[in-house]
């Protein structure tokens, strides 16, 4: 369970203080599917980074599974990121000089898993995203959708509790995007928490819950299906 209590993230830019996040209170249950929406600069990515322990809040309390993470040191945070959180990025972030297998293997390497054990797990993870045939391909030899699926295999190989996806379909055409979303939702169906940042309503409305940010605050929370109603209402005007 993710509990955010009065989370602030401020940046000092010369004389001005910028509030990327200005008091977020939010609880996300295990296994939830949440979409975070909002215009650029509304703090979506900052929020995702804080949930993903890549960034620390300037103020406020973040409890992950009941444990306040604010006091943890860098190594402890790294361990939680490694085992508990899977990241999916808009631009895939694959390492070009490694093939698909090598990229998916990275979390296992960082976690110190024995080489013998790694091989089977990597094959299984690639199999799960339908890319077992492409294990030897470099990222440049794969399509955008395939790259993102490699990234999903990488994000899920250590069986995290949470998947954080920052615009996972932002660079993809609609059919590849659909595949990627279906994959992510499949993992969620097996009990993972799925948190997406998107500004595509078509992506957001598939979520159980949508959180809309503006200027670092939550301005609206609604079930995903209501977003559909809202869209329709807007379209009907």
């Amino acid at each position: 369970m993710i509990e955010l209590e009065d989370i602030w993230r401020t940046y000092q830019l010369g004389d001005t203080t910028l509030h990327a996040l200005a008091g977020i209170d939010e609880t996300i249950q295990d296994g939830e599917h949440v979409a975070i929406m909002g215009p650029s600069g509304s703090g979506k990515s900052t929020l995702l980074n804080i949930i993903g322990l890549l960034d620390r809040p300037t103020r406020g309390t973040y409890r992950l599974d009941g444990r306040a993470v604010g006091g943890l040191d860098d190594d402890a945070l790294a361990a939680i990121r490694r085992r508990g959180i899977g990241y999916v990025f808009q631009s895939y972030h694959l390492i070009e000089r490694l093939d698909a297998r090598g990229n998916v293997e990275l979390p296992l390497i960082l976690d110190g898993v024995a080489p013998r054990e790694r091989r089977g797990r990597v094959e299984a993870a690639l199999e799960a995203v339908g890319l077992a045939e492409r294990a030897d391909h470099r990222p440049s030899e794969l399509s955008g959708g395939q790259r993102q699926r490699v990234a999903i295999a990488r994000a899920t190989i250590l069986n995290p509790r949470v998947i954080l996806a920052d615009e996972p379909t932002g660079n993809l055409d609609s059919s590849s995007g659909e595949q990627v979303l279906a994959l992510l939702e499949g993992f969620r169906a097996r009990g993972l928490t799925l948190i997406l940042v998107t500004h595509d309503p078509a992506v957001a409305r598939r979520a159980e819950r949508v959180i809309i940010l503006r200027d670092g605050r939550v301005v609206r929370r609604m079930p995903g299906r209501e977003l559909q109603d809202l869209e329709r209402a807007l379209a009907g005007e």
Binding site: I80, R81, R82, Y87, H93, I95, P107, L110, R154
Partner: peptide, 14 residues
């Protein structure tokens, strides 16, 4: 970027 990625994947600074 690669360093950022490794950190996101849970690499320690050490």
């Amino acid at each position: 970027r690669e360093i950022g990625l490794l950190r996101a994947l849970g690499a320690r600074t050490s």
